[in-house]
Design a binder for these strands. Structure first.
Length: 294
DNA sequence: AACACCCCCTGTCGGC
DNA sequence: TGCCGACAGGGGGTGT
């Protein structure tokens, strides 16, 4: 599920459920996801209040109130490939699943004082969580090397020009690197490249001029990235397989895909007449139109 | 340094 | 029906 638009959708869905609430009961149903959960995570979270929900790239940031003994901390969550949160209201005093009958792959449960239950489910367990001092969030190894967000005012093309200059790696691979534009994944890279009319096979360095500045193509790519991310957030993200938003609703951006998962179908570019093709780059599927993406 | 490859894990789907 | 391989929204680690 989770590239930037999906994580942003999760953040917005969890906001009313968690912000301003005290965590009354916290349960970790296993010791690790991809990495070990933070030491004593349940104990350290219980009794704290959620002050705000943030997002950095594909990371969800659950900001917590200060505890008497120390400063504020943030629970940093990455959803990996298959992580999701669901919200259930009014569970105060409700039956609490024993481990044996809990829905499969429910790994972390947060219950607030007003009877809201937020459950993290992740079949593949590629997700992970970390509990870090809020004041030093920027120094966290997961966050410190991330590139700029594709939402907001930071210009992207100059940053990409510095990064892509001289690179022979395919554009597709270069854009998946989170040091470039943070938050893009396989779907939105394919979609942005299609909108920009750029081939995923083109060398990343070909978008940089001899003067080291962004070319017109790179400027076009920036606009395509911004547009596809904004459109996807507005649509509530993409729902592949059974992924749901926190309230159970489906995102609907998958209906707006122009290239991703459309192998063999007609290219939607007006007047193109090409066919969407699937290739494999660094072990992952790339979908593009060889006719209009050059 | 840059890049290709493998791995983590579970579930689903298509082909035989 | 069942078995088997391919594949899935990510990214960290290793080897060349």
């Amino acid at each position: 599920m989770p590239e930037l638009p999906e994580v942003e959708t999760v953040r917005r869905g969890l906001e009313p459920a968690l912000v301003g609430k005290r965590l009354e009961r916290v349960e970790t149903r296993r010791k690790d996801l991809r990495f070990p959960l933070p030491q004593d995570m349940a104990v350290r979270l219980t009794g704290r209040s959620v002050t705000a929900l943030g997002r950095r790239a594909k990371y969800l940031l659950i900001h917590l109130s200060e505890e008497p003994a120390g400063g504020a901390e943030t629970l940093l969550c990455h959803l990996g490939m298959s992580g999701s949160f669901r919200v259930e209201e009014g569970v105060t005093g409700a039956f609490h699943h024993p481990r044996s009958v809990a829905p499969r792959h429910d790994h972390v449960v947060l219950e607030t004082a007003d009877g809201t239950r937020v459950t993290y489910n992740d079949p593949r367990r590629f997700g992970f969580m970390d509990l870090v001092p809020t004041a030093r969030l920027d120094e966290n190894p997961h966050l410190c090397a991330l590139g700029p967000e594709p939402v907001g005012n930071t210009p992207l093309a100059p940053h990409l020009a510095r990064l892509f200059g001289g690179k022979r790696a395919p554009l597709k691979a270069a854009l998946l690197d989170q040091k470039g534009i943070a938050g893009l994944g396989n779907i939105y890279v394919c979609e942005a490249l299609h909108r920009a009319g750029l081939s995923p096979r083109r060398g990343a360095g070909t978008l940089v001029g001899a003067n080291g500045r962004a070319t017109a193509r790179l400027e076009r790519l920036e606009e395509a990235i911004r547009a596809v991310i904004a459109d996807a957030i507005a649509a509530g993200g993409s729902s592949l397989r059974d992924h749901r938003q926190t309230d159970g609703a489906l995102g609907y951006f998958q209906h707006a895909f122009r290239a991703y998962d459309r192998e063999g179908q007609a290219c939607p570019t007006p007047g193109c007449g090409g066919t969407i093709t699937r290739i494999v780059q660094s072990g992952r599927s790339t979908f593009y139109c060889p006719a209009c993406q050059r």
